Computed example of a mutant assay.
Amino acid sequence: MAQRRSTPMGQPGDADLRLLRIYRKVVECGGFSAAEVELGISRAAISMAMNDLETRLGLRLCQRGRSGFSLTDEGAEVFEATLQLLASVEGFRTRVNGLHARLKGELNIGITDNLVTMPDMHITHALSALKERGPDVHINIRMIPPSDIELAVLDGRLHTGVIPDLKTLPGLNYLSLYEEASRLYCSDEHPLFAEETVDEAALSRHDAVVPAYAQTPEIKGVHEPLRAAASASDREGIAFLILSGRYLGYLPTHYAARWVRDGRMRALNPERWHYHTHYSAITRKGAPPNLVLECYLKQLAADLNTRWR
Score class of each variant (00 low, 15 high):
45 A>F: 06
303 D>C: 04
26 V>A: 07
229 A>W: 00
200 E>S: 08
215 Q>K: 05
46 I>W: 05
240 F>W: 05
26 V>T: 09
285 K>T: 02
162 V>H: 01
16 D>L: 10
280 S>Q: 11
12 P>W: 04
166 L>Q: 13
163 I>Q: 02
57 L>I: 01
137 V>E: 05
25 K>R: 13
222 V>G: 00
44 A>W: 13
143 M>I: 15
125 H>M: 05
294 E>P: 04
268 L>A: 04
116 V>R: 10
140 N>K: 10
272 R>T: 13
34 A>I: 14
123 I>A: 01
304 L>W: 03
101 A>C: 11
91 G>V: 01
97 N>C: 12
171 G>K: 03
278 H>S: 15
100 H>L: 02
297 L>H: 03
202 A>I: 02
229 A>P: 00
274 H>K: 13
154 L>N: 14
223 H>Y: 09
39 L>N: 12
108 N>F: 02
88 S>E: 08
197 T>E: 12
245 G>S: 06
304 L>S: 06
239 A>Y: 00
253 T>R: 12
132 E>H: 03
147 S>R: 14
160 T>A: 15
183 R>E: 08
68 G>N: 15
33 S>G: 14
43 R>P: 07
57 L>K: 02
12 P>C: 02
221 G>V: 04
11 Q>C: 12
96 V>H: 14
263 G>Y: 06
48 M>L: 10
43 R>E: 14
229 A>G: 04
259 W>L: 12
241 L>C: 07
267 A>Y: 06
255 Y>N: 06
307 R>H: 13
61 L>A: 09
89 V>H: 01
185 Y>G: 04
9 M>S: 06
240 F>T: 11
164 P>D: 14
28 E>K: 06
148 D>G: 15
184 L>V: 07
170 P>A: 10
90 E>I: 08
290 N>Q: 12
177 L>V: 04
275 Y>P: 01
14 D>P: 03
66 R>A: 11
133 R>L: 04
129 A>W: 04
141 I>M: 14
76 A>W: 05
271 E>C: 05
171 G>V: 14
107 L>A: 15
169 L>V: 11
130 L>T: 04
180 E>S: 15
173 N>H: 15
2 A>W: 03
183 R>P: 00
264 R>L: 12
25 K>N: 09
185 Y>W: 03
193 F>Q: 13
57 L>T: 07
268 L>G: 04
225 P>S: 09
239 A>R: 14
74 E>H: 09
211 P>L: 07
46 I>M: 08
14 D>E: 13
107 L>G: 05
254 H>G: 07
137 V>A: 06
230 A>D: 07
109 I>E: 10
247 Y>I: 00
35 A>G: 07
276 H>Q: 08
42 S>N: 13
49 A>R: 05
133 R>G: 00
65 G>E: 08
77 E>Y: 06
152 A>I: 07
231 S>R: 10
258 R>N: 06
103 L>E: 05
5 R>N: 03
84 Q>E: 06
224 E>S: 06
182 S>R: 11
59 L>W: 00
279 Y>Q: 03
229 A>K: 02
222 V>D: 11
113 D>Q: 08
290 N>I: 11
293 L>G: 06
13 G>T: 02
171 G>M: 12
134 G>D: 07
220 K>G: 15
201 A>P: 08
290 N>F: 03
23 Y>P: 12
159 H>W: 08
209 V>W: 02
162 V>I: 09
169 L>S: 13
277 T>C: 10
